[in-house]
């Protein structure tokens, strides 16, 4: 059953201001993005009850977490939080960390699916200080999920890990959240990450929380970089945004890869099948197969007309 997270919050510190007035249906993974310094972490902390200076109301369905007269402390909200740093307890080993929350809850056993989904069965007796960054994040998620929270809050849980590690870790997170059937709010500034894990998206735009326009279109983007450039046999004339899109992305030209076979790169933000076409003037360009969008990309004459190619973007920036 989908729970409704109703926010009516004002966060102000000094010059910083953020308004969050949204009713978010919590099912699956809800992504929350925004530029750094836009208040993503503060908003998440306010929902968790760790940011007492936030003014307004927070409800999960009919359960009041914060009203003008009431403030439910974090330990009574039935939440799970994964922080930017794993924040494991250094005086406890892995299994003791995961079991930590159980003594404060009525159910006392750890779901075996959880350990399996995160593949941490071999780590249970280890000291947490001996874990790698990625292992620490998996244990942190296991610890938070072990108490069966009604809502999971993740604050840039991949922070500080390199792209490759992130790409390997994201499927673990997606699998574990699904296995425990726990709705999650997932904060990240990395659009690539959110596109891989989030089912719906919200973003902070101009000091306000808003639902990201529609389901994110995966191929509406513009290419940034020098006005002309050559990469992988493709020369670009850029930038150009694709019209008619509410949401757009930027891809740096050196993040684009053109291959004849579909690559199975884990790091890809997206992969599109494109076709080499010709303008009336005889210039070649790429057209997305099965869509009306096209890229203003000049392509080497060595590519045959009608050739199907795979265009892979290795990293995306969200355009606001």
């Amino acid at each position: 059953m989908t729970k409704l997270l109703s926010l009516d919050l004002e966060l102000t510190f000094g010059n910083f201001h953020l308004t969050a007035n949204e009713k978010i249906p919590m099912s699956g993974v809800v992504g929350l993005s925004g530029p750094s310094g836009s208040g993503k972490t503060s908003l998440l902390n306010a929902i968790a009850g760790l940011q007492k200076s936030a003014k307004g109301t927070v409800f999960l369905d009919n359960e009041p977490w914060q009203t003008t007269s009431e403030f439910v402390p974090p330990h009574k909200r039935g939440i799970g939080v994964v922080f930017q740093e794993a924040r494991l307890f250094p005086h406890l080993n892995v299994i003791e960390n995961i079991q930590f929350g159980l003594r404060f809850h009525s159910h006392k056993t750890i779901n075996a699916d959880l350990i399996e989904a995160l593949e941490i069965g071999d780590l249970l007796k280890r000291q947490v200080t001996a874990l790698s960054g990625g292992e620490q994040r998996r244990v942190a998620l296991a610890r938070a999920l072990a108490v069966n929270p009604q809502l999971m809050l993740l604050d840039e849980p991949m922070n500080g890990l390199d792209i490759e590690r992130r790409a390997r870790l994201i499927p673990f997170f997606a699998k574990a959240l699904k296995a425990m059937e726990c709705p999650a709010l997932y904060v990240s500034h990395d659009q690539t990450e959110l596109m891989q894990i989030a089912d719906t998206q919200y973003c902070i735009r101009d000091t306000e929380l808003a639902k990201a326009g529609r389901q994110l279109p995966k191929y509406k983007f513009q290419i940034t970089g020098p006005n002309t450039g050559m990469f992988n046999g493709v020369s670009f004339e850029i930038p150009r945004s694709i019209s008619g899109s509410e949401q757009s992305f930027r891809v740096s030209h050196d993040k684009i890869l053109l291959t004849s076979n579909k690559p199975d790169s884990l790091n890809a933000a997206f992969t599109l099948e494109v076709e080499v076409c010709e303008t009336i003037e005889g210039c070649r360009f790429l057209k997305v197969v099965g869509a009306n969008d096209e890229f203003n990309v000049e392509i080497d004459a060595s590519y045959q007309l009608g050739t199907r190619l795979w265009l892979t973007a290795l990293g995306l920036e969200f355009c606001y």
Binding site: A48, P73, H75, I79, F83, F89, F100, G101, F104, A144
Partner: peptide, 15 residues
């Protein structure tokens, strides 16, 4: 930080 983590896992201030 570790106390906040404990609070989100259900520990009251004394715990």
């Amino acid at each position: 930080a570790p106390l906040e983590a404990a609070s989100t896992l259900g520990a009251n201030p004394v715990q």
